[in-house]
């Protein structure tokens, strides 16, 4: 299953002009508000009719110069930012709005909403309503799933409640999922591919780890950092070891079971550098490596790539410090990790 999207549309002085391909799995449309992310997926849904465009899903053409398939014939599953459940219908009738689905039971179980069927919409919590909205979209048997900032209306606790369900969708559905987001943590945790949109144009695209690790990251200079895949190891004295390519990282408060795969995000601004192995430091995680590249990343700061066991870790330091320490490529160095992000939970180490 794959889709291609290529759209050109003018709104007053703003022009959306972007094209991309998406395969099975999560493709994130990332960018600041007003970048055109939601317009992009509205065009995919057929709710926005772009001036020009070509949208294909598998072999079906949804839009080209002569065709414009109306929304009800496209079979998109659209999860809106504000849920948009029908207030005059029960949860069950919302879920079955598109008709009965052979795998209803499995989908309800996957989302943990089977017990909500008789509820009224007004009686749902924010997290429940968003799971029902996801269920309603899935039960329409979509060819493409569109998620428009599905977490942004929720508080941190509700986000943490929904995220695992979206991860399951990613791993179990065999359709392209387009995720609109402006939260790096969401994208880092969920997406295989990120498309960075700014003012209607694509400024970068690729795997989130690669984009974040680029000095002065195209996802926003402040967001530069390292995305490290890891495996949960044993827990001792409240600290869990996460085994990564760059070496073991110790983290408190990890609830995932040993053997569970996860992604760690280490913001570049939270990595300090030391030319000698530091002693008497409160930081738990000190990785040894050598310097890869040193790149200017804005006024007075540089992004230093530290290669640990062949895995690059990005550190953001001031140009002045870099000069004072006399940093140069190939030099042995220690990366002191001040904080690690695990999914959405900031964990200090």
């Amino acid at each position: 299953m794959s889709m291609t999207v290529d759209i050109r549309h003018r709104f007053g002085t703003f022009t959306l002009d972007a094209g991309f391909e998406a395969d099975t799995g999560v493709t994130a449309l990332f960018g600041p508000s007003g970048a055109g992310k939601t317009s992009m997926i509205n065009a995919v849904a057929g709710l926005l009719r772009p001036d020009r465009g070509r949208i294909t899903v598998d072999s079906a053409v949804w839009q080209d110069d002569t065709t414009f398939l109306p929304p009800h014939k496209r079979r998109v599953g659209y999860v809106f930012q504000d849920g948009r459940l029908f207030p005059h219908l029960s949860v069950a009738r919302n879920l079955r709005f598109a008709g009965l689905h052979a795998e209803e039971g499995a989908i309800l179980d996957m989302l943990g909403i089977a017990h909500l069927m008789d509820r009224r919409i007004a009686a749902l919590s924010g997290g429940e309503a968003q799971r029902v909205a996801i269920g309603r979209a899935l039960l329409s048997d979509p060819k493409v799933l569109l998620l428009d900032e599905p977490l942004s209306a929720l508080d941190a606790a509700r986000k943490a409640e929904i995220l695992p369900y979206i991860e399951r969708l990613r791993d179990e559905l065999r359709i392209p999922i387009l995720l609109v987001s402006h939260a790096v943590e969401e994208v880092a945790r969920l997406a295989q591919t990120v498309i960075v949109l700014d003012q209607g144009r694509i400024t970068a695209s690729g795997a989130p780890a690669a984009l974040l690790a680029e000095p002065g990251s195209p996802m926003g200079p402040a967001e530069a950092g390292t995305l490290l895949p890891g495996t949960v190891g044993p827990t001792e004295q409240g600290l869990t070891r996460i085994d990564t390519g760059a070496g073991p990282i110790l983290l408190p408060e990890v609830t995932a079971a040993p053997g569970h795969a996860l992604r760690l995000r280490i913001p570049a601004r939270d990595v300090m550098l030391a030319t000698q192995k530091p002693e008497g430091l409160s930081a738990l995680n000190i990785l040894a490596g050598h310097i890869g590249t040193i790149t200017a990343a804005g006024a007075g700061v540089v992004d230093v790539q530290v290669i640990c066991n062949g895995v690059p870790i990005l550190a953001r330091i001031t140009a002045q410090s870099a000069g004072r320490l006399g940093l140069c490529p190939g030099q042995p160095i220690y990366a002191v990790v001040k904080s690690v992000t695990l999914g959405l939970d900031q964990v200090f180490a």
């Binding site: 709710l47 929304p71 009800h72 659209y78 809106f80 948009r84 029908f86 207030p87 979209a137 329409s140």
Partner: peptide, 26 residues
């Protein structure tokens, strides 16, 4: 809210169905 009508369209409801299943009952 026309946004609810949009939601119904993405769920496969043709214009008449949107009217009779969402607009009219509401």
């Amino acid at each position: 809210d026309p946004k609810l009508e949009d939601a119904a369209r993405t769920l496969g409801a043709a214009p008449l169905a949107v009217f009779f299943r969402v607009t009219l009952p509401m």
